[in-house]
Each structure stands twice: as structure tokens, then as C-alpha cells.
């Protein structure tokens, strides 16, 4: 159980607590603090969903929901990776470009070199992981700030996409590749299955493995982690590799949905992904965040974008809306922390 998860455990009885009276209140609010962002985000998601169902007749249709699910899956999968990075106190700005790179390379593996779709998808993921490895090494070994390391990769990966494709979309993947983004097993769309698998895996990594545990510790106090024998550099690198790999997977899902590798795919996508993670309650200062929260955030962002399209609202306004939501979410995070007297950060 991570600390953000509210539990039904007994409240402290006070007793020998140093701050007996206030202790109860503080403990309660403390346990809710992480969850509050998620509860707020989930509430917002439900409200937006209901409102859209009422005012946009085309919103609550099977077709649109299917579409929504597969749209969300791209962002949700990427958000899981970025959550890990943000928990360590880092940031990954490169996920949009990396997803595009993975998408075009993956499709080229299938279309140009004739590999089967499984190899194509794996190839895309490996490309993403490689980009993540570069990010990770720049942060952990070279000592660049994560913002700069991944900002550079944002540009480098996009440049590589344009070089590889000559700025022309790549087509010609086999029909079966479309299953990843458009297929259904029974009544469940495959992209939704992918979200479930990635989210469970991400949650598992965060709560049950060294990597996840150390991510929280490094984000909370990296020097304390180092002095407790945590191999900070190695785990920092791993986190960026995972983020890159999941960006690669997101890129492959997107490529499958549009059945091509688009060189301009994912421009600005990093903002939606980071917004999702932040809306989900992760702290940009590190040490806090959950997969579930980011998932809710990803759905919220996707529903807003999708709903806006259904209502015929211009993309430009969507961008404004998403930006405002980022402000609100981060303000909320800081406000909560200050109220709890957590620290001055």
C-alpha cells in the first residue's frame, strides 16, 4: 500500500502522541492529502462525463466510447511511465517525440523490412527504451537537469523522425498490426486491455519492487537514499528507460490506430501526459504519485479533448482548458502541502 491510499485502518487514539488533540486531525488530513487530488480528479472526471453525456448526443455512443478508450490508451500508457519519472523528482518532456520515433521506426520495420507485427511493436518499444536510456544517462551520469536532458531529447527524437521519414508518413504495415489499436477481444477493446495490463504492471513496480520504492525515496530525499546505500544513479536511469519504453508502446498504439507512422505525431503530447500525471496527484517536487491517479488524469484529459470535439469546440480552446487544468492541479497540490505544513517547497 502506498501512503497515498486511504485505508479504513483505525485512527490514532492520541494517548502518548506528542500532538494528541491536533494529531487526529493532522493524521486524517494527512492520509487524505495524497488521495484528495485523486478524489478531486475522479470527481471532475465523473462530472465532465455526465455533463458531456447530456449535452453532446454523440458522446455516449458505442463508437465514440471505443474511440475514447483507444485515444486514452496512448496517453495513459505514457502517463504510467512519466509518473515513475515524476515520483523521482524528475520530468520527461520527450515522450511525444519518442512516441513518434517509435511509431515510424516500428511501422518501417514491418512495411519496409517485412518483419511481423510483433517484432514491429517490440522494435518500437526498444527504440523508445533506447531514447529513455539516453535521457537517463544524461541525468544520472552527466548530471544534466531532467528538464534539460529530456528537452534535448524532445528535439533530437523529432529530428530523427524527420530524417528517417523525410517528413513523409510511413504506410504499409500488415493488416494484423491494426489489432493493437483497433482490435477487440470479446467486447473489450485491445487498447483498454493494454491500459489495464500496463497500469497493473506499473502499480506493481511502484509498490512491490525496489525500483518503485527507491523512486519514492529518491524523490523525497535523494541524499538520504544515497547514504542508505541506494544505487541512485542506476535506478534513476532505469526510470527513464521505462518511461521511454512506455512512450514507445504509446507510439505503437497510436500508429496502429491510424495504421501508419506519422512524422508529426505527438507534438505537444508531452503536455497532456504530464498534465494527466499532475492532475492525478503526483508532485512535481517528487516523492508522491500513483498509477491510479495518473490513469484518472489521463482519462480526464482525454474526455475533455474528446468531448470538446463532440461539441465542435476548436482545438485552440481545448489547449487553453487543459492549461488551466494544469494550473489548478498544481495549485491544489501546493495548497494541500502548505496546509499540512509539509515543507516550504
Amino acid at each position: 500500500m502506498s501512503e497515498q491510499t486511504p485505508t479504513s485502518e483505525q485512527q490514532p487514539t492520541g494517548g502518548r502522541e506528542p500532538e494528541a488533540g491536533r494529531g487526529l486531525v493532522r493524521s486524517l488530513s494527512d492520509r487524505l492529502s495524497g488521495a484528495i487530488s485523486q478524489v478531486a480528479a475522479a470527481g471532475a472526471l465523473i462530472v465532465v462525463f455526465i455533463v458531456l453525456s447530456i449535452i453532446a448526443p454523440s458522446f455516449l455512443t458505442a463508437d465514440n466510447l471505443f474511440n475514447l478508450g483507444s485515444q486514452t490508451s496512448v496517453k495513459a500508457v505514457m502517463a504510467v511511465g512519466v509518473t515513475l519519472v515524476i515520483i523521482t523528482g524528475g520530468i520527461d518532456l520527450s515522450v511525444g517525440s519518442v512516441a513518434a520515433l517509435s511509431g515510424v521506426v516500428g511501422v518501417m520495420l514491418m512495411a519496409t523490412f517485412g518483419f511481423n507485427p510483433l517484432i514491429g511493436v517490440l522494435g518500437g518499444i526498444v527504440i523508445g527504451a533506447a531514447a529513455g536510456l539516453v535521457n537517463g544517462l544524461l541525468v544520472s551520469m552527466v548530471g544534466l537537469p531532467p528538464f534539460i536532458a529530456t528537452l534535448g531529447m524532445l528535439s533530437v527524437a523529432r529530428g530523427l523522425v524527420l530524417i528517417v521519414t523525410g517528413a513523409v508518413a510511413v504506410f504499409g504495415a500488415p493488416e494484423s498490426f491494426r489489432l493493437l489499436g483497433q482490435g477487440v477481444i470479446g467486447v473489450v477493446p485491445i487498447p483498454i486491455l493494454v491500459i489495464v495490463v500496463v497500469a497493473l504492471g506499473g502499480h506493481f513496480v511502484l509498490t512491490r519492487t525496489r525500483l518503485g520504492r527507491y523512486a519514492y525515496v529518491m524523490g523525497s530525499n535523494s541524499e538520504a537514499a544515497r547514504l542508505s546505500g541506494v544505487p541512485v544513479k542506476r535506478h534513476t536511469t532505469s526510470v527513464y528507460v521505462l518511461s521511454g519504453a512506455l512512450a514507445g508502446l504509446g507510439g505503437m498504439i497510436a500508429a496502429s490506430r491510424i495504421n501508419s507512422g506519422q512524422p508529426n505525431f505527438g507534438e505537444g503530447l508531452e503536455l497532456d501526459v504530464i498534465a494527466a500525471v499532475v492532475i492525478g496527484g503526483a508532485s512535481l517536487f517528487g516523492g508522491r504519485g500513483t498509477v491510479w491517479g495518473s490513469l484518472i488524469g489521463a482519462f480526464l484529459v482525454a474526455v475533455i479533448r474528446n468531448g470538446a470535439v463532440q461539441l465542435g469546440i476548436n482545438t485552440f480552446y481545448q489547449n487553453v482548458l487543459i492549461g488551466v487544468i494544469i494550473w489548478l492541479a498544481v495549485w491544489w497540490d501546493r495548497y494541500q502541502r502548505r496546509k499540512l505544513g509539509a515543507d516550504s517547497g
Binding site: 525496489r210 523525497s220 530525499n221 542508505s228 516523492g287 508522491r288
Partner: peptide, 28 residues
């Protein structure tokens, strides 16, 4: 500054230098 991960629980701070593991998983 360099002793505790203040936001994390007492438990996670205590096991920081030696995590109880069950194979590759933390033994919660």
C-alpha cells in the same frame, strides 16, 4: 537534509537501508 525521506512513512524509512525481499519483490 540527508537522513530521512520526510514525506514517506516510518516503515519505508526504517527499511531503506535493507529492504526485506521475497525474491525480486518487497516482502510487505
Amino acid at each position: 537534509d540527508d537522513g530521512l525521506a520526510l514525506q514517506l512513512g516510518v516503515d519505508k524509512n526504517i527499511t531503506l537501508a535493507r529492504l526485506p525481499m521475497w525474491s525480486v519483490l518487497i516482502d510487505l
